[in-house]
Design a protein around this nucleic acid. Structure first.
Length: 285
DNA sequence: CACCATGTTCCTTG
DNA sequence: CCAAGGAACATGGT
């Protein structure tokens, strides 16, 4: 569920339904998720607390809590396959496949399911402290900032944009879309892009992410993938909502299909071990 | 069986 | 110290 738009969609949803939720009991089925804390330390920090509100930073959710250390929010990262949703307390939530963490409240249970187990629940802020600016914040993210991080760098522009210490929240799907919109080849050395190109790139990042959040929050999402409508996420299981989301990508996952701009077949290559999709006519080196 | 998958972190090499 | 490249993590879908 991973990139900024999906996390923001989840944040908005949860912020509206999780405020005031009091953690009565904690179940940790996959201890790896709460690293580096021990399960007992994690439970001590979270037990008895109430959710005050939920923020986002890059791909991280920050769950602010009442009743305990006020400056230590619970930080959640969904990794590649994390899902978060509420179930009734009467449901057999403990039997949900790949349930990694569950927070039991008075009448609901906040369930965290993570098939691959790359996600993380922690109170450790170290990875947040090094994170780059929010791409949707015009005060810190603008063409001049892009110019600053690109200058004198030979790194491929795709790798640079996916580096969370440079820009927070872009991942492998949306970076492909952004580069297509910007007409930039994914392997273009960052330092060779002239200022006008960086202005276009900045605009493409804002447009791509803003539009994805807009679609994510306005669509009738099948949150849990079961048709129930409460729970979470719409991408990664082969349901109807999933297909609708995929259809709006211009190049991601579209190897061999015609470029939306010029009909040249989309190519796929590997960059840093990630599938990279681009139009060889529109995006030249 | 082979290959691919929305991500981060750690290690090695230069 | 920095940058680049790659493997590892764990599991499922096609």
């Amino acid at each position: 569920m991973p990139e900024l738009p999906e996390v923001e969609t989840l944040r908005q949803h949860l912020d509206g339904v999780a405020r005031g939720f009091r953690v009565q009991k904690i179940l940790v089925n996959k201890p790896r998720i709460v690293r580096p804390e021990s399960v007992t330390a994690f439970k001590r920090l979270l037990g008895g607390q109430t959710i005050h509100h939920i923020d986002r930073r890059g791909k991280f959710l920050m769950v602010h809590l009442n009743g305990g250390s006020p400056f230590k929010p619970l930080i959640i990262h969904l990794g590649m396959s994390g899902r978060l949703f509420f179930r009734d307390r009467s449901d057999a939530f403990q039997d949900i496949p790949h349930l990694a963490v569950a927070l039991e409240g008075d009448d609901r249970v906040l369930c965290y399911v993570d098939v691959r187990g790359f996600g993380r629940w922690t109170f450790d802020v170290s990875s947040l402290e090094r994170m780059g600016p929010e791409p949707l914040d015009p005060d810190t993210f603008h063409p001049e900032y892009l110019q600053q991080i690109c200058r004198d760098r030979s790194v491929k522009i795709k790798d640079l944009l996916m580096h969370q210490e440079r820009v927070a929240g872009l991942g492998n799907i949306y970076v492909n879309e952004v580069l297509f919109l910007s007409r930039l080849h994914p392997m273009r050395p960052a330092g060779t892009i002239p200022k006008p190109g960086l202005v276009v790139l900045c605009q493409a990042i804002r447009k791509t992410l803003t539009e994805a959040v807009r679609l994510g929050t306005s669509s009738d999402l099948d949150f849990e993938g079961t048709g129930r409508g409460d729970g979470f996420f719409y991408f990664g299981r082969s349901g109807q909502a999933d297909r609708e989301v995929k259809e709006r990508f211009m190049v991601y996952g579209r190897e061999g299909q015609p470029c939306p701009a010029c009909d040249t077949p989309i190519l796929r290559m590997m960059i840093s071990q990630r599938g990279t999709y681009y139009c060889p006519t529109c995006q030249t080196l």
